[in-house]
Nucleic acid binder design. Structure first.
Lengths: 161, 161
DNA sequence: CTGTATCCTTAAAGATACTG
DNA sequence: CAGTATCTTTAAGGATACAG
C-alpha cells in the first residue's frame, strides 16, 4: 500500500498550508493571479503547463477557497479570494529568497507599491524589533497536541544547552 | 514523452525557489531544522516520512546548499546553512497563513523572540509604509527576459484599465 | 476558448528487509 | 542509528484528440 501521506494531519500550520496550496504549480498560478491573469489561456500560456494539469489545479484552488470562479460558464474568470490574497506575503517572501539565492540578485520581476517604490524585504520582528533567524524560538500554541507540544519543548530545551 | 517540467527555467525567482526547495517534505524538514532537529531519526520520527524519501530529501537539500552535513559519517548531523536560515521569513509567512486560514487561528506552534514575545505578522511594506495585497504592483527586473517583461507589462496595463 | 477524455510514461511514495 | 536496496502501487505530468 502506498497512499500518499496527508500532510494536513501533521498538527502544523505549515503542513496544512502546503496541503491547501497543493504544489508548485498552484503557487505559480497564484503568482500569475497576482500579476493579473484571469483566464485559463493566460495561465496556460504563461506557465506552459499541460491543460489537464491546469484544469485540475484550478479546481483544487477553487475547492480550497483560494480562487473563485465567475463569469460565463464557457469563458470563466479566476480571481483570488481574500484567502488567496492573504498568500501574498508568503509568496513574496519566497520570491525574495529566490531573488537572492537562486537568481543572483537579478530578479526577473520586482514588486512595488502603486508609485513604483520597491517592496522592502519581508522581515522577522517581534514587539522588541527585528530578529535574526537564530533568535527565533518556538513554543506550543493553543492548537498543539500533546505530542507536538512535547516535541517543541524537547527541541527548544536542547537548543539552549 | 513526459519528463517533468523544470520549473527553474521559468525566469521567475518564485519558480526557482520552489525548484530548489523541492517539495513539501523539504519545507517540513526545514521547519524541523529550525526547531532544532539535527539527526536523521529525529526528522523521521517527527514527520513520519519513509526513510528512503527522507534520505533523498536530505541529499537534495544538502545538494542545494540549504542544509549541510557534518559530524561522523555514520552518525551525521544536518544543520541549516545561511541560505537555509534565510528561508525562515518565507516559511513563517506561510505558517502564519496556515494559522489563520487552515488552523482557525489556533496555531499548533508559536514563533517568538528569545524573551517569548510573539512574532508579528510578516507584512508588506515599501518606503511609504504598509501595503495591502491589492496595492502591490509588479514590474520587470534586471533579470527579466523580453518575454517576462512583456507579460508583466501587459498584465499591469490591463489591471489599471 | 475552455475545457474533458484518453493514453502513455515516469517518478514519487511507501513498506520492508537488509547492511555497516 | 543511518541509511541503502528492492519492490509495489499509485499518482502525476504531459501529449493529443475531441467537444461544447
Amino acid at each position: 500500500m502506498t497512499a500518499k501521506t496527508d500532510l494536513a494531519k501533521l498538527n502544523c500550520s505549515l503542513a496544512r498550508a502546503l496541503a491547501a496550496v497543493g504544489d508548485s504549480w498552484s503557487m505559480l498560478i497564484a503568482r500569475d493571479a497576482f500579476l493579473g491573469a484571469r483566464r485559463f489561456g493566460e495561465f496556460q500560456a504563461s506557465l506552459g503547463i499541460a491543460k489537464n494539469i491546469l484544469a485540475a489545479r484550478l479546481a483544487h484552488l477553487v475547492g480550497h477557497g483560494i480562487l473563485e470562479r465567475s463569469g460565463p460558464v464557457r469563458r470563466p474568470h479566476y480571481a483570488l479570494t481574500q484567502k488567496g490574497e492573504a498568500l501574498l506575503p508568503a509568496l513574496l517572501a519566497f520570491m525574495q529568497w529566490g531573488d537572492r539565492w537562486q537568481s543572483a540578485n537579478r530578479p526577473p520581476m520586482l514588486a512595488t507599491d502603486a508609485d513604483g517604490n520597491p517592496l522592502a524585504l519581508l522581515a522577522l520582528r517581534s514587539a522588541e524589533g527585528r530578529l535574526a533567524p537564530q533568535q527565533v524560538r518556538f513554543q506550543p500554541g493553543p492548537g498543539a497536541t500533546k505530542r507536538t507540544g512535547a516535541y517543541i519543548k524537547f527541541m527548544q530545551a536542547r537548543k539552549r544547552s
